[in-house]
Amino acid sequence: MPLFALFLTAQRSSARRGAEPLIDPALLRSTSLLAVQAVLFVVNASVAVFFVLTLHLQETLGYTPLQAALTFVPATAGIVAGNVLAFRFTARLGRVLTAAAVTCTLASLTVIAVLALLLGRDLNGWTILVPALTFGAGMGTALNSLFASYMAHTIPEQAGSASGIMNTTVQLGTATGIALFGTLYFTAVGQGSATATAYSLLAAAALLAVGLALTPAMPKATTATPPTATPDTTVQAHEGVR
């Protein structure tokens, strides 16, 4: 809230001076673009839970930083594959692709949580290889489809504002996720690290379910913007693309 209040104050100050606002206000009047922002925030907050899994691997299972990093190599490979999928299919599938990607990420976190509970200290990189791979694929597809969808529904004059909004959303989502799931982990760690890790992963999956519920409000598909359109009319036009 303090950050949002500071932003509003700066916007009003710019308006009083007759200067250009920090961001194009038209972007904040589009419910479909606000939905993209909300889903992006939720996804980034949820994937930050891997911070907790890293703690579990190193502090409880005795992994070195290198071993923990290697455990997440499949997730990195999945992110690369997800980037390719998003690049090829976002324009055609729009929010359907995003919803599928969020579902994949949600399911992967749930599987890892169950494995953490069932295996305890026997959890290792091989046991979570497949869900880590699908987690990365879902995350890569979701994040890139969200960025592509948002930017495709703006015009060149809005590019600076749009990219700033999206990058700020990413940073806020990641910071919120680390704070949220880190707090949950350390609150429940008295029940055992595996249990605390599983709780955190399941909470992240539940948060992704909220993001999934928001995807119907996103644009259906990306479309080309007419070169003569103005920022206001472009956003208003895309209000009908749900």
Score class of each variant (00 low, 15 high):
residue 107 A to Q: 10
residue 5 A to R: 12
residue 77 A to D: 06
residue 6 L to E: 15
residue 186 F to K: 04
residue 38 A to L: 15
residue 202 L to P: 00
residue 140 G to E: 09
residue 191 Q to V: 02
residue 163 S to V: 11
residue 119 L to R: 05
residue 58 Q to W: 03
residue 175 A to I: 10
residue 61 L to T: 06
residue 8 L to I: 15
residue 100 A to W: 15
residue 241 V to P: 03
residue 136 G to H: 07
residue 212 L to I: 08
residue 38 A to I: 14
residue 70 L to D: 02
residue 63 Y to K: 01
residue 25 P to V: 08
residue 155 I to V: 05
residue 199 Y to I: 12
residue 132 A to P: 02
residue 52 V to M: 06
residue 39 V to K: 08
residue 153 H to Y: 07
residue 168 T to L: 14
residue 49 V to W: 13
residue 118 L to G: 00
residue 53 L to I: 07
residue 152 A to I: 11
residue 181 F to Y: 08
residue 241 V to G: 05
residue 125 G to Q: 06
residue 40 L to R: 04
residue 237 A to P: 10
residue 145 S to K: 03
residue 133 L to D: 04
residue 56 H to D: 00
residue 48 A to H: 11
residue 184 L to T: 05
residue 142 A to L: 09
residue 18 G to Q: 10
residue 56 H to V: 07
residue 135 F to H: 07
residue 152 A to T: 13
residue 31 T to L: 05
residue 164 G to E: 13
residue 226 P to G: 04
residue 126 W to Q: 04
residue 104 C to W: 09
residue 12 R to N: 08
residue 30 S to K: 01
residue 141 T to G: 03
residue 97 L to V: 12
residue 74 P to L: 13
residue 229 A to M: 15
residue 193 S to V: 04
residue 58 Q to G: 00
residue 167 N to F: 07
residue 47 V to M: 15
residue 123 L to S: 03
residue 161 S to V: 12
residue 39 V to Y: 07
residue 112 I to C: 02
residue 20 E to D: 14
residue 207 L to Q: 00
residue 241 V to D: 13
residue 23 I to E: 02
residue 172 L to N: 01
residue 42 V to D: 09
residue 155 I to S: 03
residue 222 T to A: 12
residue 223 T to A: 12
residue 172 L to W: 03
residue 129 L to Y: 03
residue 46 S to T: 12
residue 15 A to Q: 08
residue 186 F to N: 11
residue 121 R to I: 12
residue 23 I to H: 03
residue 177 G to L: 11
residue 148 A to R: 02
residue 57 L to W: 04
residue 183 T to G: 08
residue 60 T to L: 02
residue 47 V to K: 07
residue 116 A to I: 09
residue 221 A to Q: 14
